[in-house]
Structures are given as C-alpha cells and as structure tokens.
C-alpha cells in the first residue's frame, strides 16, 4: 500500500488545511480535518486567525479557515496580502461546504470549534480536488 503522505501523492493527505482561531482554539476542527485524511496545520496561540494567510502561503496550503466574531479579519487579510478568494461571516458547516464548492480558499466563521465542521469542509475539499483532477 502506498504511503498517502509520500511526495507526489494525489490523495487527501496531499491536501493541507490551515486553521487559525482568535482565541487559540480550533482543536476540534483540526481533529475533524484529520479524520477526513487531510493534513492540518493548526496555528497555535491567540490571534491565529490573523495569520491564516501567512501560514497558508508558507505551507502551500489548499484552504484556510479563520475563526473570530465573523472570521472576517483573517479572511480579508489573507485576500489582501495573497489574493486568496474568501468567504466569511459563516456560521454553519453547510455554508463552509458551499464556499469550498464555489472555489473559496479562505473561509471565515464565527466562534465555532467542532469536529463536524472540520470533517465536512475537508471532505468537500477532497471532492472538489477529485472533480478537477
């Protein structure tokens, strides 16, 4: 069986999602992303949301998720610095899935931290990648 994490793999583990949370949380979302088989980078510490764009760029990530009151601070900063397509002010996993399906690269949410959110968004990203490859 090939190692899904080996270079050149096109499986879910070749995808990376960055998570940044204003209050330094996001662990549950990260767990959900990992459960979908996607690599996750959880920015440690408070105000991680404001660094989502920077870390995405550094990691070559496929998607970023920013959490604060509206998720806007992280998303808007990421767009301004790196040109990512964004969607924010989201409050549900459904909204996040739709955003991924429509090609958004940085998603901004209110204060959520659930495994379901991470899993569903990661799964949506995998499906989007499969559909375009």
């Amino acid at each position: 069986m090939s190692d899904l994490r080996s270079p050149g793999s096109s499986g879910p583990a070749s995808l990376t999602i960055v998570i940044g949370h204003r209050l330094g949380k996001g662990q549950q979302v990260a767990t959900g992303v990992e459960a979908a088989g996607v690599r996750v980078v959880l920015i440690p510490g408070p105000a991680g949301d404001m660094r989502v764009g920077d870390v995405m760029d550094a990691e070559g990530a496929d998607l970023g998720i920013s959490f604060c009151g509206s998720g806007g601070a992280g998303a808007v900063t990421a767009k301004s610095k790196y040109g990512y397509e964004i969607e924010f002010n989201m409050r549900s996993a459904d909204a996040g899935v739709t955003a991924v399906q429509t090609g958004k690269q940085v998603l901004g949410f209110g204060f959520l931290d659930t495994e379901e959110l991470g899993f569903r968004i990661a799964t949506a990203l995998i499906k989007k990648r499969e559909a375009t490859s």
Binding site: M50, C68, G69, S70, G72, A73, G74, A75, V76, T77, S80, K81, N89
Partner: peptide
C-alpha cells in the same frame, strides 16, 4: 495588515 484586520472586526462589530 493589522489595521485591515481591525477594520474587518470593526465592521462586524
């Protein structure tokens, strides 16, 4: 960058 982040926050607030 941080001013932009603050502006986004201020808008939501």
């Amino acid at each position: 960058d941080r001013r932009l982040a603050l502006a986004a926050h201020a808008l939501a607030f």
